Simulated assay, not measured.
Amino acid sequence: MASSGQAGTSRTASCAVGSPSGAVPPGGALVPYGRAARQDAVLARLRSEPAYAADCFTVWSAHPHAGETWSTTRTALLEEVLRPAVRALSPEQLTAVEEAASHTGSSRTAEAFRSWHRSGGGLRRRLGSRIAARVRRA
Protein backbone atom coordinates (compact mmCIF):
# COMPACT_ATOMS: atom_id res chain seq x y z
CA MET A 1 0.00 0.00 0.00
CA ALA A 2 1.15 3.49 -0.78
CA SER A 3 0.60 6.45 1.46
CA SER A 4 -1.56 9.27 0.21
CA GLY A 5 0.59 11.80 2.00
CA GLN A 6 -2.07 12.57 4.58
CA ALA A 7 -1.55 11.41 8.14
CA GLY A 8 -3.73 8.48 9.04
CA THR A 9 -4.94 7.75 5.54
CA SER A 10 -3.84 5.18 3.04
CA ARG A 11 -4.92 4.30 -0.43
CA THR A 12 -4.71 1.27 -2.59
CA ALA A 13 -3.01 1.54 -5.91
CA SER A 14 -6.16 0.60 -7.75
CA CYS A 15 -9.28 2.28 -6.43
CA ALA A 16 -10.45 -0.83 -4.62
CA VAL A 17 -14.10 -0.03 -3.97
CA GLY A 18 -15.30 -3.18 -2.29
CA SER A 19 -12.42 -5.30 -3.62
CA PRO A 20 -10.15 -6.62 -0.88
CA SER A 21 -7.37 -7.49 -3.32
CA GLY A 22 -7.27 -4.00 -4.80
CA ALA A 23 -7.97 -5.33 -8.28
CA VAL A 24 -10.89 -4.63 -10.56
CA PRO A 25 -13.14 -7.69 -10.23
CA PRO A 26 -13.83 -10.05 -13.14
CA GLY A 27 -16.92 -9.63 -15.32
CA GLY A 28 -19.58 -11.14 -13.04
CA ALA A 29 -18.56 -8.92 -10.13
CA LEU A 30 -18.67 -5.66 -12.08
CA VAL A 31 -22.26 -4.80 -11.14
CA PRO A 32 -21.56 -4.87 -7.38
CA TYR A 33 -18.27 -3.05 -8.04
CA GLY A 34 -20.16 -0.29 -9.86
CA ARG A 35 -22.68 -0.06 -7.02
CA ALA A 36 -19.89 0.13 -4.43
CA ALA A 37 -18.28 2.99 -6.36
CA ARG A 38 -21.49 4.99 -6.01
CA GLN A 39 -21.62 4.76 -2.20
CA ASP A 40 -21.48 8.02 -0.25
CA ALA A 41 -18.18 7.09 1.41
CA VAL A 42 -16.50 6.54 -1.96
CA LEU A 43 -17.95 9.72 -3.42
CA ALA A 44 -16.75 11.72 -0.41
CA ARG A 45 -13.30 10.17 -0.69
CA LEU A 46 -13.11 11.06 -4.41
CA ARG A 47 -13.80 14.69 -3.50
CA SER A 48 -11.41 14.80 -0.55
CA GLU A 49 -8.39 12.67 -1.52
CA PRO A 50 -6.69 13.68 -4.75
CA ALA A 51 -4.56 10.51 -4.79
CA TYR A 52 -7.68 8.34 -4.56
CA ALA A 53 -9.35 10.23 -7.41
CA ALA A 54 -6.18 9.78 -9.48
CA ASP A 55 -6.10 6.05 -8.65
CA CYS A 56 -9.73 5.66 -9.71
CA PHE A 57 -9.12 7.51 -12.96
CA THR A 58 -6.11 5.30 -13.68
CA VAL A 59 -8.03 2.08 -13.02
CA TRP A 60 -11.31 3.12 -14.59
CA SER A 61 -9.65 4.35 -17.77
CA ALA A 62 -7.54 1.20 -18.16
CA HIS A 63 -8.18 -1.59 -20.64
CA PRO A 64 -10.77 0.14 -22.84
CA HIS A 65 -10.94 -2.90 -25.13
CA ALA A 66 -11.31 -5.55 -22.40
CA GLY A 67 -14.83 -6.40 -23.42
CA GLU A 68 -18.29 -4.92 -23.53
CA THR A 69 -19.06 -5.47 -19.84
CA TRP A 70 -15.95 -3.66 -18.63
CA SER A 71 -16.31 -0.95 -21.29
CA THR A 72 -19.86 -0.20 -20.17
CA THR A 73 -18.89 -0.26 -16.49
CA ARG A 74 -15.77 1.88 -16.88
CA THR A 75 -17.58 4.47 -18.98
CA ALA A 76 -20.36 4.72 -16.39
CA LEU A 77 -17.84 5.02 -13.54
CA LEU A 78 -15.88 7.74 -15.32
CA GLU A 79 -18.92 9.74 -16.43
CA GLU A 80 -21.41 9.17 -13.60
CA VAL A 81 -19.11 8.84 -10.59
CA LEU A 82 -15.72 10.44 -11.20
CA ARG A 83 -16.68 13.35 -13.49
CA PRO A 84 -19.19 14.91 -11.04
CA ALA A 85 -16.67 14.52 -8.20
CA VAL A 86 -13.91 16.16 -10.26
CA ARG A 87 -16.19 19.01 -11.36
CA ALA A 88 -16.78 19.85 -7.69
CA LEU A 89 -13.04 20.24 -7.00
CA SER A 90 -11.32 23.58 -6.54
CA PRO A 91 -8.52 24.48 -8.96
CA GLU A 92 -5.98 23.59 -6.25
CA GLN A 93 -7.58 20.18 -5.69
CA LEU A 94 -7.70 19.57 -9.42
CA THR A 95 -3.98 20.32 -9.68
CA ALA A 96 -3.37 17.88 -6.82
CA VAL A 97 -5.28 15.16 -8.71
CA GLU A 98 -3.17 15.82 -11.82
CA GLU A 99 0.02 15.58 -9.78
CA ALA A 100 -1.17 12.39 -8.11
CA ALA A 101 -2.03 10.94 -11.53
CA SER A 102 1.52 11.54 -12.70
CA HIS A 103 2.82 9.71 -9.60
CA THR A 104 0.23 6.92 -9.84
CA GLY A 105 0.89 6.16 -13.47
CA SER A 106 3.13 8.30 -15.59
CA SER A 107 3.16 11.71 -17.21
CA ARG A 108 0.93 10.11 -19.86
CA THR A 109 -1.59 9.26 -17.15
CA ALA A 110 -1.62 12.89 -16.01
CA GLU A 111 -2.06 14.07 -19.60
CA ALA A 112 -4.86 11.54 -20.14
CA PHE A 113 -6.56 12.87 -17.00
CA ARG A 114 -6.25 16.48 -18.22
CA SER A 115 -7.60 15.53 -21.62
CA TRP A 116 -10.50 13.57 -20.10
CA HIS A 117 -11.31 16.42 -17.72
CA ARG A 118 -11.19 19.02 -20.50
CA SER A 119 -13.41 16.91 -22.75
CA GLY A 120 -16.33 17.75 -20.49
CA GLY A 121 -19.48 15.84 -21.15
CA GLY A 122 -18.79 14.77 -24.71
CA LEU A 123 -22.30 14.57 -26.16
CA ARG A 124 -23.66 17.29 -23.86
CA ARG A 125 -20.85 19.61 -24.88
CA ARG A 126 -21.41 18.97 -28.60
CA LEU A 127 -25.17 19.48 -28.27
CA GLY A 128 -24.59 22.68 -26.32
CA SER A 129 -22.30 23.97 -29.07
CA ARG A 130 -24.87 23.17 -31.74
CA ILE A 131 -27.64 24.89 -29.82
CA ALA A 132 -25.45 27.95 -29.23
CA ALA A 133 -24.58 28.07 -32.94
CA ARG A 134 -28.27 27.97 -33.88
CA VAL A 135 -29.10 30.72 -31.41
CA ARG A 136 -26.30 32.91 -32.85
CA ARG A 137 -27.57 32.37 -36.40
CA ALA A 138 -31.13 33.25 -35.50
Score class of each variant (00 low, 15 high):
residue 128 G to K: 06
residue 1 M to C: 10
residue 110 A to S: 14
residue 124 R to Q: 05
residue 60 W to M: 04
residue 91 P to Y: 04
residue 21 S to N: 07
residue 102 S to C: 08
residue 123 L to A: 09
residue 82 L to H: 07
residue 128 G to D: 05
residue 51 A to C: 05
residue 129 S to A: 12
residue 54 A to S: 13
residue 50 P to L: 15
residue 8 G to S: 11
residue 27 G to H: 02
residue 59 V to T: 13
residue 133 A to I: 00
residue 86 V to C: 14
residue 21 S to V: 10
residue 119 S to M: 02
residue 45 R to L: 12
residue 130 R to W: 06
residue 89 L to W: 03
residue 47 R to P: 02
residue 99 E to A: 15
residue 20 P to D: 12
residue 16 A to I: 08
residue 62 A to L: 08
residue 83 R to S: 06
residue 48 S to E: 14
residue 77 L to P: 02
residue 14 S to G: 15
residue 126 R to T: 07
residue 60 W to D: 08
residue 4 S to A: 13
residue 8 G to D: 07
residue 11 R to Y: 02
residue 109 T to E: 07
residue 10 S to C: 03
residue 2 A to D: 09
residue 130 R to P: 00
residue 15 C to Q: 01
residue 36 A to R: 09
residue 101 A to T: 03
residue 67 G to W: 02
residue 66 A to C: 01
residue 99 E to P: 00
residue 84 P to H: 10
residue 103 H to C: 08
residue 122 G to Y: 06
residue 93 Q to H: 10
residue 91 P to T: 12
residue 89 L to G: 06
residue 52 Y to H: 15
residue 14 S to A: 10
residue 105 G to R: 08
residue 134 R to N: 06
residue 36 A to H: 08
residue 41 A to Y: 01
residue 133 A to G: 12
residue 10 S to N: 06
residue 30 L to I: 04
residue 118 R to V: 11
residue 29 A to S: 12
residue 10 S to T: 11
residue 41 A to H: 11
residue 113 F to S: 01
residue 12 T to D: 14
residue 94 L to P: 01
residue 29 A to N: 07
residue 34 G to C: 11
residue 30 L to M: 12
residue 86 V to P: 05
residue 120 G to P: 01
residue 69 T to D: 12
residue 2 A to F: 06
residue 60 W to T: 05
residue 134 R to A: 12
residue 109 T to V: 09
residue 82 L to E: 06
residue 101 A to H: 02
residue 76 A to G: 09
residue 127 L to I: 13
residue 95 T to Y: 05
residue 107 S to M: 10
residue 112 A to L: 06
residue 13 A to Q: 10
residue 14 S to Q: 05
residue 56 C to K: 09
residue 100 A to V: 04
residue 74 R to M: 08
residue 60 W to N: 12
residue 33 Y to A: 06
residue 119 S to T: 03
residue 33 Y to W: 14
residue 12 T to W: 08
residue 128 G to V: 00
residue 116 W to L: 13
residue 49 E to F: 02
residue 4 S to D: 13
residue 134 R to S: 10
residue 46 L to W: 04
residue 53 A to D: 01
residue 63 H to P: 00
residue 21 S to T: 15
residue 29 A to K: 13
residue 128 G to W: 05
residue 136 R to N: 08
residue 35 R to L: 14
residue 82 L to F: 02
residue 38 R to Y: 01
residue 72 T to A: 15
